[in-house]
Amino acid sequence: MNICPCGSGKKYEDCCKKYIKKALIPPTAELLMKSRYTAYVVGDFDYILETHDPATVSDVSRDSIIAWSESSKWDGLEIVKTKAGKVRDKKGIVEFKASYIANGKRHIHHEKSLFVKIKGRWYYHGWAE
């Protein structure tokens, strides 16, 4: 893989790989969102679960994550809007659109996600209201 799937235009090695392989911790909610999307693309299911808020991770199924990821051809991430989620924040919202093809049909997953910072690390909490 050359260009990072997150849409940054950077090489994967210089972008999300450093977060997924735990060389660095994403400093913002948006960078965590981008690296989680990339983890779906590259099939790193442990990263997806490890970056899910411990308070809500029991609401997700590893098997469903794997099934969705492997049955989809991921083809783009658009960050629509962010609210807070910066280095000094404790919470943030990232609205995004992830496009993919499944069963021969194009789909767009549009979500406003809530991220929380716990002990200096960002986690995906779930859908924001």
Rank of each mutant, 00 (worst) to 15 (best):
Asn2Lys: 06
Ile3Lys: 12
Pro5Gly: 00
Lys10Thr: 02
Lys11Trp: 03
Lys11Cys: 05
Glu13Gly: 05
Asp14Glu: 12
Cys16Thr: 05
Tyr19His: 02
Tyr19Lys: 02
Lys22Tyr: 13
Ala23Glu: 10
Ala23Phe: 11
Ala23Asn: 15
Leu24Cys: 15
Leu24Ile: 12
Ile25Trp: 13
Ile25Ala: 11
Pro26His: 00
Pro27Arg: 13
Pro27Glu: 08
Leu31Met: 13
Leu32Asn: 10
Met33Trp: 11
Met33Val: 02
Lys34Ile: 01
Arg36Glu: 07
Arg36Leu: 13
Arg36Asn: 15
Tyr37Gly: 12
Thr38His: 10
Ala39Pro: 06
Tyr40Thr: 14
Val41Gln: 08
Val42His: 07
Phe45Gln: 08
Ile48Ser: 11
Leu49Met: 14
Leu49Cys: 02
Glu50Val: 14
Glu50Arg: 13
Thr51Asp: 04
Thr51Gln: 08
Asp53Leu: 00
Ala55Asn: 15
Ser58Phe: 02
Asp59Gly: 07
Asp59Pro: 14
Asp59Ser: 11
Asp59Trp: 07
Ser61Leu: 01
Ser61Phe: 03
Arg62Ile: 08
Arg62Tyr: 09
Asp63Thr: 10
Asp63Tyr: 01
Ser64Gln: 09
Ile65Ala: 08
Ile65Thr: 05
Ala67Tyr: 11
Trp68Gly: 15
Glu70Val: 15
Glu70Gln: 13
Ser71Asp: 15
Ser71Arg: 08
Ser72Phe: 09
Lys73Leu: 10
Trp74Met: 00
Trp74Arg: 01
Asp75Met: 10
Gly76Ala: 05
Gly76Leu: 06
Gly76Thr: 05
Glu78Arg: 14
Glu78Ile: 14
Lys81Tyr: 11
Lys83Leu: 10
Lys83Ala: 04
Lys86His: 13
Val87Leu: 02
Val87Glu: 08
Arg88Val: 15
Asp89Gln: 06
Asp89Ile: 07
Lys90Val: 02
Lys91Leu: 10
Gly92Ile: 07
Ile93Asp: 09
Ile93His: 04
Val94His: 07
Val94Arg: 09
Glu95Tyr: 10
Phe96Leu: 10
Phe96His: 06
Phe96Asn: 13
Ala98Ile: 05
Ser99Phe: 07
Tyr100Phe: 09
Ile101Asn: 15
Ile101Thr: 15
Gly104Trp: 02
Arg106Gly: 03
Arg106Met: 03
His107Phe: 07
His110Lys: 08
Glu111His: 06
Lys112Gly: 02
Lys112Pro: 01
Ser113His: 03
Phe115His: 00
Phe115Met: 00
Val116Phe: 00
Val116Lys: 01
Lys117Cys: 03
Gly120Tyr: 01
Arg121Gly: 00
Arg121Leu: 02
Arg121Asp: 01
Gly126Asn: 00
Ala128Arg: 11
Ala128Tyr: 12
Glu129Ile: 10
Glu129Leu: 07
